[in-house]
């Protein structure tokens, strides 16, 4: 799947990075908790989120993410979009809720990040 396919599936609006929408995407994660997102180290992951603050961009930068999807029609401020463009991100916004956006993308073949979590001693 490419970002362009995601735009079609989600009836999304491209907010920045139009020239990069043919970038392939392999996995997705959906979270408003950047702490959780930081635990998914995979640069080919798309992040679906309802948060539009600068920390979403910082998190994306640290992980080398290529695409952000803002759910529920959220659109961040101009400054954030300019920063996103500088980082080489594609940012899209969909009217779907995060849950529906995930469902549509999953149905279209996109899957979650595989997690290899080490066994913790106190997991029983």
């Amino acid at each position: 799947m490419t970002i362009a396919d995601m735009v079609r599936v989600l009836h999304a609006r491209v907010l920045c990075g139009q020239e990069r929408i043919d970038t392939p995407v392999y996995t997705a994660c959906c979270s408003d908790l950047m702490s959780d997102v930081l635990a998914f180290v995979n640069e080919k992951t798309v992040l679906i989120t309802g948060l539009t603050n600068p920390h979403v961009l910082r998190t994306a930068d640290m992980l080398d993410l290529k695409c952000l999807v803002f759910a529920r029609g959220k659109v961040p401020g101009e400054e954030i979009l300019e920063q996103a463009d500088e980082q080489g991100l594609v940012v899209i916004s969909t009217k779907a809720t995060a849950f529906t956006a995930c469902g549509l993308l999953y149905e279209a073949g996109l899957r979650g990040v595989p997690i290899e979590w080490p066994e913790s001693e106190d997991s029983q």
Binding site: M34, S35, D36, L51, H55
Partner: peptide, 9 residues
């Protein structure tokens, strides 16, 4: 509120 404090740090 900024998306942190999940206890994952």
């Amino acid at each position: 509120s900024l998306g942190f404090g999940a206890g994952m740090g």
